[in-house]
Each structure stands twice: as structure tokens, then as C-alpha cells.
């Protein structure tokens, strides 16, 4: 549940952002980013469907690598990623 993942924003409509991470798309709420609204192309750390902070592309990429390993090594897949 606490597993936050970085995603890249591909489109924004109001507070809703279409985000992508490694070929997986999700609708992400930007409601908690109102003071520092990200733009299309930015990377955000996403937790339970909400962007909690922006981040750099480099940081996002290294997190994705770790995330891959976690998913491979777990014997029981997480109920929600």
C-alpha cells in the first residue's frame, strides 16, 4: 500500500492527469499538487492514485528499476501496485 511509484504525465484535464510508467497508464489526481502544478511531460511520485511530489526523470528511472526487481522477487504479488 505504501509503495509509491514515479509516473510521467502525458495529459492534464483539470486536476486529472493521464500518467504512464513503463507502458502502464493510470488516471492520477493532481489535487495535492495545487501549490506547484506540474506540466505535461513532468514526472510525479504517485501514491494511491494521487501525485504527492514532482521529481526528475533520472530519479524516476532509477525507481522504476527497483520497482521491477521488487515485482519479480515477491512470492505473492502485491494486491495493488
Amino acid at each position: 500500500m505504501c509503495l509509491a511509484i514515479p509516473m510521467q504525465i502525458e495529459a492534464i484535464e483539470g486536476y486529472l492527469a493521464r500518467c504512464q510508467a513503463k507502458g502502464v497508464w493510470r488516471d492520477v489526481s493532481l489535487f495535492m499538487m495545487q501549490d506547484e502544478m506540474p506540466k505535461v511531460g513532468d514526472y510525479v511520485m504517485v501514491h494511491v492514485g494521487y501525485a504527492i511530489q514532482t521529481m526528475t526523470e533520472a530519479e524516476a528511472r532509477s525507481s522504476w528499476e527497483l520497482f521491477d526487481e521488487l515485482l519479480c522477487e515477491t512470492d505473492v504479488p502485491p494486491e495493488h501496485a
Binding site: 500500500m1 505504501c2 509509491a4 486536476y15 489526481s29 489535487f31 495535492m32 501514491h47 494511491v48 492514485g49 494521487y50 504527492i52
Partner: peptide, 16 residues
């Protein structure tokens, strides 16, 4: 259930 990182999105949903 959740710590601050999870409760904040719950608060956001309530506020929305």
C-alpha cells in the same frame, strides 16, 4: 487505514 502519506489523499478526496 494508513499513515500520513495515505491519509493525505483521503483528506484530498474529502475536500474534493
Amino acid at each position: 487505514a494508513g499513515f500520513e502519506t495515505t491519509t493525505a489523499p483521503v483528506a484530498a478526496a474529502i475536500a474534493e
